[in-house]
């Protein structure tokens, strides 16, 4: 078991290095990061409107809480009378009064 653990740790380290390299490359070539690094792109208009691009799926949807799964963890949006205005496979638009936005690992 301990052997396995070290192995997985090693793997993770390798992966991290890979990401670092990718990030550097993206920065160098000025490529859009949300595509190269598979990150969600989040756009907010005040606290009324929130657009999440490049997401994986919704985990929880409620009037005052929405949790969205992305490639890099979960985004939790809390607010009042939240409505999914539009949803496609690429982007998600949330309307309502947004109170907080959190990133959960």
């Amino acid at each position: 078991m301990p052997e396995k653990r070290t192995k997985s740790a090693k793997k993770r380290k390798e992966e991290e290095q890979k990401i670092n390299l990718k990030e550097k490359m993206a920065e160098l070539l000025e490529l859009p990061k949300e595509i190269v690094l598979d990150l969600p792109k989040i756009t907010m208009f005040g606290n009324k409107n929130l657009i999440v691009e490049n997401y994986k799926g919704i985990i929880e949807y409620d009037n005052n809480r929405i949790r969205v799964n992305t490639g890099k963890g979960i985004i939790r949006v809390a607010g009042d009378s939240l409505v999914i205005k539009e949803i496609t496979s690429e982007d998600l638009m949330i309307d309502g009064e947004i109170l907080s936005l959190e990133f959960l690992k």
Binding site: G57, D62, N63, V83, I84, E86, I87
Partner: peptide
């Protein structure tokens, strides 16, 4: 319901004005 919405989006079905 979340699963329902996720499957819809994955199958390229456009949904809008979703109200819980």
């Amino acid at each position: 319901l979340e699963k329902f919405v996720n499957i819809c989006t994955r199958r390229q079905i456009l949904l809008w004005d979703i109200k819980r």
